[in-house]
Design a protein around this nucleic acid. Structure first.
Lengths: 202, 202
DNA sequence: CAAATAATGTTTACAGCGACAACATGAGCG
DNA sequence: CGCTCATGTTGTCGCTGTAAACATTATTTG
């Protein structure tokens, strides 16, 4: 019932054996289902069912479930980075920085399963020579802080400031997601926590 | 092969049909297996196999898998609280506070799966009238901060300081666990981030 | 102390899952 | 037109969580 209503494909399903652009459809419906359930609860068979395709067709595009989840995580990370950039656009200095932190937490609250997936997938992004490092949310904060700290700050100081900033927004996001922190609304929580003054920039 | 080597039970297995103290054994081996794999990878049947008991015997003590995981999480939370208290013992003021944060992160690094489980289980601890609130790690930080902030601080200021402190250590722990942050060792990372001065207590 | 009853563990069974192998289809190129 | 290979399907396997019916032992009670 749902094989033909996917209109986003480059070339739509011609009504038969081949889907047309199954890979994109898998990622798309995968993301859609992540909006309504956790990543662990996500099942390959369910995705296939939703698209209207056999369960094992997935393995023509991804070696296993983890690979599909990694693709979803990558998509989510790109989306997060985009929202961060958009939030900081037109602003600079402290304001740009604050807006990026705000966007980070807002993204987590609005996409809980996807946000969690991002940080449970990709098990190796630690070393500096990471492939996707420049698209990582942490990297965006780094740029912002580098600008904030000024020329007088040492590399170590900048690194410490980045660590603090990232830890702060990430921790706030995670605590909200796990229901440990309640507030009138998310924005006021962010305001309580994300304050440039509290980051000890220099 | 492993039904009789469990010597921790109150009354040991008499060699036959009944285990003796299966509930404790389940939690115990559950925790043990959490040391070597994620919580999602944990299987009821595997635990039962390890203990040497049938798979469905678990349902005499826990209604479903989530209930067992919740019990493991509760155990982990208690352990974390204990370690925090122990770390702060004999110290006070800033030092006690710093040591508690350090213990928090150290616990996460040493018990990754358990730490994650703690914060994915227990979906409702947000509202103030939570049952286990006083055993929550956040609560311990709260006490410490209340002492730190002094009498002049308002309730809102204390709350904000707690939020910042908890977010900071929790975020650092989570980022380390997800491999986003690397450092020479954990303690130096903690030192970089956990500094009372950065919490803007008043 | 013996019999009834409750607590605890077992067997059997089922549906859903991820994944592999063998097969079917059809798109694109010569 | 016909070949080839990418893509989708069917069938199957072993694993999982969990429900129902049954077996055994602990505990209470007459």
């Amino acid at each position: 019932m749902s094989a033909n209503d996917n209109t986003v494909n480059i070339r739509a399903n011609k009504g038969g054996y081949h889907h047309g652009d199954l890979r994109s459809a898998l990622i798309e419906t995968g993301l859609k289902m992540l909006e309504q359930g956790s990543a662990e609860a996500l099942s390959l068979r369910e995705i296939a069912r939703e698209i209207g395709v056999s369960a094992t067709s997935i393995y023509r595009h991804f070696p296993d479930k983890d690979a599909l989840l990694a693709a979803l995580a990558a998509e989510g990370m790109a989306k997060l980075a985009r929202e961060q950039k958009a939030a900081a656009k037109g602003k600079d200095g402290k304001e740009a920085f604050t807006e990026m932190g705000r966007a980070y937490v807002r993204f987590a609250v609005r996409n809980p399963a996807l946000f969690r997936l991002i940080y449970t997938s990709l098990p190796a992004a630690a070393d500096p020579n990471c492939v996707n490092a420049e698209e990582s949310p942490g990297w965006l904060l780094r740029e912002s802080i580098a600008g904030l700290a000024g020329a007088t700050a040492s590399a170590a100081q900048k690194r410490a400031a980045l660590l603090r900033a990232w830890s702060l927004v990430h921790g706030l996001a995670m605590l909200i997601l796990s229901g440990q922190i309640a507030g009138p609304d998310v924005d006021s929580l962010i305001n309580e926590v994300v304050s440039v003054d509290s980051l000890k920039l220099r």
